[in-house]
């Protein structure tokens, strides 16, 4: 069964004239890792919010078409129903923090309390999420005394503790150092392998090429492409949409190297390495 089905989704923010989303239609399978890319204002964040219902329930505005997640119609369901299926990690962790909790541990409990999780079930879920994101040593720290990178890890852990079937992340590693970002991508990939559906808006194109099963390219509220990273990043018209292919694909394109089996440019470090080593002009 399809985990997410979006049909003709249109959305306009209040007090604006132009549609932010102009009729998107696509389907996502359970356990897929989907990367959403596009230049700023292309609709990435709006789409993330439409998948978990902040669009339209919180922002209001004009809405058309439908979004179904796991048998629930987002536009008509209550936000508390949607929240049991879909978790959203905000772009800016500072705006996600509840502000009502004094420690990191309690902040992770906030979502679980609202879901009505039994007290004895909370602690193991919180411990697991803290361990996954490497923030166990900050458990007693006030959330607002964390650095940007630590707060971002906490924001992700808060949503993972809720064990949503679908997790939507909006640039989740922007404040992390390179290895920290890599750790988070690996943790999220592991969740996806275990069946969690992952949707991530991201500018880190090399990471998207490496980790996502399919890439959804947005431009001015419209879907330009929804295909494998190899297909999307081998397009000749990416520049028009303000997107550059991964560095590894740029090298291969510059050297005229395509994957002999597919005719597409290599996208990842491993793939590019194999092809470049064997290259003879």
């Amino acid at each position: 069964m399809k985990k997410i089905t979006v049909s003709g989704l249109k959305y306009r923010y209040p007090l604006t004239e132009e549609l932010a989303l102009k009729g998107l239609s696509f389907e996502i399978e359970k356990g897929e890792f989907i990367g959403i890319i596009g230049q700023n204002l292309s609709g990435k964040s709006t789409l993330c919010q439409a998948l978990m219902g902040l669009v339209p329930h919180f922002y209001k505005g004009g809405y058309g078409g439908s979004v179904w997640v796991d048998g629930l119609e987002v536009g008509k369901a209550e936000i508390h129903e949607i929240a049991q299926k879909v978790g959203l990690v905000f772009q800016n962790p500072f705006t996600q923090v509840s502000g009502s909790k004094m420690t990191v541990f309690e902040e992770l409990a906030f979502g679980l309390e609202n879901l009505g999780v039994a007290r004895e079930d909370m602690a193991p879920r919180i411990e697991h999420a803290m361990e996954l994101l490497g923030i166990g040593r900050f458990r007693d720290r006030n959330p607002f005394d964390l650095s940007g990178g630590q707060m971002q890890r906490m924001a992700i852990a808060s949503v993972i503790a809720m064990e949503p079937e679908i997790i939507v992340l909006d640039e989740p590693t922007s404040q992390l150092d390179p290895q920290g970002a890599e750790d988070v991508f690996q943790a999220i990939e592991a969740l996806s392998r275990r069946g969690m559906t992952v949707i991530m808006a991201e500018h880190k194109i090399e990471k998207i090429a490496r980790y996502s099963d399919r890439v959804l390219l947005l431009h001015q509220g419209e879907m330009v492409a929804f295909d494998t990273p190899q297909q999307v990043f081998s397009r000749d018209d990416l520049e028009r949409y303000g997107v550059v292919p991964p560095v590894f694909a740029q090298v291969c394109k510059g050297m005229g190297i395509r994957n002999p089996a597919t005719g597409l440019y290599p996208m990842t470090l491993d793939e590019a390495c194999d092809q470049v080593v064997n290259w003879h002009e």
């Binding site: 150092d177 290895q179 920290g180 991964p246 560095v247 470090l269 390495c273 470049v276 080593v277």
Partner: peptide, 18 residues
């Protein structure tokens, strides 16, 4: 690597091919 950093992607490829 010790400092939790990594070289730029292009340098990584350069090093990987030896």
């Amino acid at each position: 690597k010790q400092s939790h950093l990594e070289p730029p992607h292009i340098t990584q490829l350069y090093n990987r091919i030896g």
